[in-house]
């Protein structure tokens, strides 16, 4: 399944281990939130959050983590967007934030703005899908977890004095 990061396919040696599986190397294991917390601070560095998981429970571990997966069960469940924003903006997480599960073309733009930088997409054209989804909008009003300069900022930095369209 293609993993797209920074606009290009990348490979990843880590995989998810269910709670009853024993990973040979904890550094290569993505684990559940419960397992990560139970194992204590310095065993795992990758975790997968399910929609109901509390992202703030990662606070004590955040410095050690360099891969967080957030699972999307379908188009309708948008909790992962809040989880991403909390990780990036509240906890200051700077590692890879990967969307997994139902990663749909028409949500990729919202995911990227919420702080995701990697997308696991079950489609041979994943690279084109991500590129297309991220090129559809060149403007955004709200500040979010990405580095888009918002319309509100652009209006006030780009122009010495504000001008109305009908004044132009």
């Amino acid at each position: 399944m293609p993993l797209i990061k920074g606009g290009a396919p990348v490979s990843c040696s880590r995989r998810f281990f269910a709670d009853e599986e024993t990973p040979p190397d904890p550094n290569d294991a993505i684990v559940s939130l419960g397992r990560l917390v139970a194992a204590g601070g310095d065993v795992f560095r990758s975790v997968r959050l399910m929609p109901a998981d509390d992202p703030l429970a990662l606070a004590p571990h955040i410095r050690r983590l360099d891969l967080i997966e957030i699972a999307f069960p379908g188009f309708r469940d948008g909790r992962g967007f809040s989880a991403a924003q909390l990780l990036r903006r509240r906890l200051g997480y700077t590692g890879e934030l990967r969307a997994v599960g139902q990663v749909l073309r028409d949500q990729v733009f919202f995911m990227a703005r919420s702080g995701f930088d990697a997308f696991l997409i079950d489609d041979p054209h994943a690279e084109e899908i991500v590129a297309a989804a991220l090129s559809e909008f060149t403007v955004a009003y709200q500040s979010a977890a990405d580095d888009t300069r918002t319309i509100w900022e652009r209006r006030w930095n780009a122009r010495p004095a504000h001008t109305r369209r009908d004044d132009r």
Partner: peptide
């Protein structure tokens, strides 16, 4: 209106 338009976090409530 502007704040809520294509809000990255609150479009799949």
């Amino acid at each position: 209106r502007q704040w809520s338009t294509l809000h990255p976090e609150f479009s799949f409530l």
